[in-house]
Design a protein around this nucleic acid. Structure first.
Lengths: 173, 173
DNA sequence: CAAGACTAGTTGCGAATCGCGACCTATAAA
DNA sequence: TTTATAGGTCGCGATTCGCAACTAGTCTTG
């Protein structure tokens, strides 16, 4: 990581997530892995990524526990890269990103729809939900200290009018 | 984007999403914006990012419709950067990434909990849900052509045993 | 109104990263 | 035994990043 310290600050999971997955190609490699690819040459051909970069990213994902690297039993030239449970855990994030990309790409060609295998019906758009399942928007969210969980949060009547902010009204991150 | 063509292939929203948000700092700037910051100097101080990079990223986000840039009425030295609806639409993706980062960061210090303002109860972990709300894992998902939506998908009995893959069994992306 | 301070940048330059092609090693197939 | 394949590494030019310094408008203060 060298000089990149600022990404590693604590109390927010985003820096760590970006540290692991924030480099160019990482998410596309992940997508390919979810696609069922697991050999070096497969990733290389599918993505058209430079070999040294691919090598670097795969090593990094292994190092960070997103993938495991195992020599192939039946053909010892080959190596298998497989998603770990931690890697599989990135599916909601990747899908949310994808859905966003699809929604806001004009003339997006809906070639294939992600569905529940069982009934072939499309999955829902990914949303943020309250404990009881209600869908929540940004304005309905707030931060609470662990000891005060269960107490309503006052967000200071929405700081979003110009020049009101004396300091951070609410802390979303 | 010059030579970066491979990211812009169609039929998948991820390349577009990464094109817009995949550069270093973009997601942290987004987080800061969700935090209620909207001035150049605020972002600069909060993130410790180089000024030229910040300038570049903000311009890019404006260009891509994630933020709008408006000169401040009351102090014309200042400029306001605000999230558009498109920008707000990134909240599920950002939160999914954050939750993943939190979950897999050891000794993660849970300083603040994201809650529903109304009752102060924590939001759910972000998941993928079927049309009827059932939570779905990777193994239960498949791709279907639009005209065949509603027909169950056979994923070829899970390609994930070594050396079976003659070709892509199922196409997750 | 003039002198300073503040905001939002831009510019230049060295350092780090990316992308391409060539090369290398171990294994498998002909 | 020769050739092909898989998974890399190495070197080098092009791009991007990070830092510090500088600039152009716009308040603010005396």
């Amino acid at each position: 990581m060298g000089i990149r310290e600022p990404l590693s600050e604590m109390a927010c999971g985003l820096p760590h997530a970006l540290d692991v997955m924030g480099e160019r190609w990482s998410f596309l490699i992940l997508r390919a892995a979810f696609n069922g690819l697991y050999h070096f040459e497969e990733f290389s051909q599918e993505l058209g990524i430079a070999r040294n970069i691919l090598s670097n990213r795969l090593a990094r994902m292994v190092e960070n526990g997103v993938m495991v690297r195992t020599p192939c039993e039946t053909d010892r030239r080959k190596v298998e890269y497989r998603l770990t449970e931690k890697g599989l855990g990135l599916l909601p994030a990747m899908l949310a990103l994808r859905q966003w990309g699809e929604r806001y790409t004009e003339n997006f060609n809906t070639g294939l729809v992600l569905v529940d295998c069982r009934d072939g019906l499309p999955v829902q758009p990914i949303t943020i939900r309250a404990h009881d399942g209600r869908e929540l928007s940004w304005h309905e969210l707030g931060w609470q200290t662990p000891d005060k969980v269960g107490q309503p949060v006052d967000r200071g009547s929405e700081a979003h009018s110009a020049d009101k902010a004396p300091d951070k009204i609410e802390n979303f991150g």
